[in-house]
Design a protein around this nucleic acid. Structure first.
Lengths: 341, 341
DNA sequence: CTGTTAGCGCATTCAG
DNA sequence: CTGAATGCGCTAACAG
């Protein structure tokens, strides 16, 4: 049990009790090699007695590194962002870093967030900015050296977005979309509609573009897309528009939630899935396996993305990295919401 | 545009450029009243020229307050905890505090988390510890003065859990469970089963207990519960056990995900909902409104919980608080997964 | 109204 | 192997 006397003990207190200078205490704490083992023992004992704990702030100020990474994110409650947040936080912690989060609810606040986190002297910055506006806002400020964009690749991934020098990690959205559409094509569908996400979201853009390209490459028609807002209700609301597409036999929904709403809408109209219409989702949220019917979808490992992001940051900081890939590979999960045409 | 010369400018640099002492700069930055306005202008100009930003670390070290709150949480990817995390973070930010998160994956790591965050010198601590083990772990360490338990009330809320002095904020789980069960009773159901959450989770305990008490109070039978793990699959797996209860016409599931799995299981067996069995969930996740059928459930506002937690913390820190209630009131959302017996 | 002098708790030179 | 200076960037007393 520690013995708190009024205030938290400092190095000085420990030094005094051990009969050494505070430098020596510092050396013991940072286990420097040049310490006589009995001195070390004495100091360790004093530390134990006093319940001493080093002050992270002071250490950071002196050492110049805070061992904290900042996490700037557009705080949506969507499945993807939340899980990437979690992935980043866990990975950071494993590397001995704390994660300080700054959630914004509007793209305008990104500037403020950058300033805030920089003032906090975070060593590195992970940014979850899933919409175009967010990135534009970012383009106007000077970013820290160690900085990574998490989970959002602008559609022209090889060309560059508005922030050329910013490295990115994320799931290969184009591949995911291709897997989904090709699965439908392979099942014999020839008129495949797309229930898109909000046009200002990068992931929505990429998924839509790849849906388009894949159909074109297969020589199939590309019907007009219907746009939702990621939420189930918007999928539900899109039902009629989707059904209005002549000859449609399958829909590629940009996420599972909208797919759910769509399935709901279809069944309300007495249509069977996949009998009358095949539906594919994207994300593989925990619920998808138990939709009625269980949803065929594209699985993406958000936590792995978070880890990869931290890994890249550590590398930038000169620490050992695990060499995670920057592109996480998504996987098609075939369940029963899709069937041959 | 700032003019970064090698390193980030300090107060001294600003002072020098403005021809004043760094103290004066400090006064301007913290807008102290006693400053001649032309001096202030000069300093402000220098700050602008240099792109100066105060160093949060140094400020915290000197001032004794870091303006950061620590968030210690059992990092599950469950809907509730994640959204409370978000609520806490947003509310903290609105109050000018940064939130530093420490996520643990096992209750054993709570001690470590406390130490970590305390070393980081957070001003206050919010703890999301939804399981019994977590709290036990917490009982062994000395907690900071400003500390709050978020979203998890031990079942004996009036009596006290293992940590007497720890204030708590959260949704009134007992009320939520009561609303759910009473709705079923009012619909004429007389044999109401419970698909419980993991027994070591507080919320699961409270919901189960209240289900039990409500049935007893109504003079109804209390069949054995079936325990799941919150996930949809466990609801699916519980189907047969639930159906084995003689005369069962309704099930109160401890969360929406398990309710979803159960609905899936029931429909696989050719049973109709609510025709053959009524199902009520808990949480009101975004998907629930579009389940087949749309799920009757208990809505709880996790974000409000986060806000209330921060509010209480601010109060403890001597800052103005909004006077949020400590108990958030849940609401029954009646949809179509329930019907008269 | 402003400058001077001290720290906050630690790390990083240097001596010895 | 250890201790004495010096500084990280800022705030908090006091002076004047």
């Amino acid at each position: 049990m520690p013995a708190p006397r009024g205030h938290a003990p400092s190095m000085r207190d420990v030094a005094q009790r051990a009969g050494v200078s505070h430098q020596t205490v510092s050396r013991v704490v940072n286990d420097s090699p040049n310490i006589r083992s009995d001195t070390r023992e004495r100091v360790l004992q004093a530390i134990e007695d006093l319940g001493y704990r080093p002050n992270g702030l002071a250490r950071a100020l002196a050492h110049g590194r805070s061992r904290r990474i900042g996490l700037l994110m557009e705080s949506s409650s969507h499945y993807g962002p939340m899980n990437m947040l979690r992935g980043v936080e866990l990975a950071a912690r494993r590397a001995g870093y704390a994660a300080t989060t700054f959630g914004v609810t509007s793209p305008d606040e990104f500037d403020e967030g950058i300033d805030f986190l920089r003032d906090q002297r975070v060593d590195a910055l992970a940014i979850i900015a899933p919409r175009a506006q967010s990135l534009e806002s970012l383009a106007r400020v000077t970013l820290p050296q160690a900085c990574v964009l998490v989970g959002s690749m602008p559609p022209d991934a090889d060309g560059f977005g508005p922030i050329p020098s910013l490295p990115r990690v994320g799931v290969d959205q184009a591949l995911g979309a291709r897997l989904a559409v090709q699965h439908l094509i392979a099942s014999g569908h020839r008129m495949i509609a797309h229930l898109a996400g909000p046009a200002d979201w990068f992931d929505a853009q990429v998924r839509r573009n790849e849906w388009f390209r894949t159909l074109e490459a297969a020589g199939l028609e590309t019907p007009p897309t219907v746009e939702g807002d990621w939420r189930p209700q918007s999928g539900y609301d899109a039902t009629d528009a989707l059904l209005a597409i002549p000859g449609v036999t399958a829909v590629f929904a940009a996420n599972d939630q909208m797919a759910l709403g769509l399935i709901h809408g279809l069944s309300d109209r007495g249509l069977a899935i996949p009998g009358d219409l095949s539906v594919v989702g994207f994300d593989d949220i925990p619920e998808s396996a138990h939709f009625r019917p269980p949803l065929t979808t594209v699985h993406q490992d958000f936590q792995a993305v978070g880890e990869a992001a931290v890994d890249l940051l550590l590398q930038r900081l000169g620490e050992a990295s695990h060499g995670s890939p920057q592109q996480i590979v998504p996987e098609l999960v075939v369940r029963t919401s899709t069937a041959p045409a």
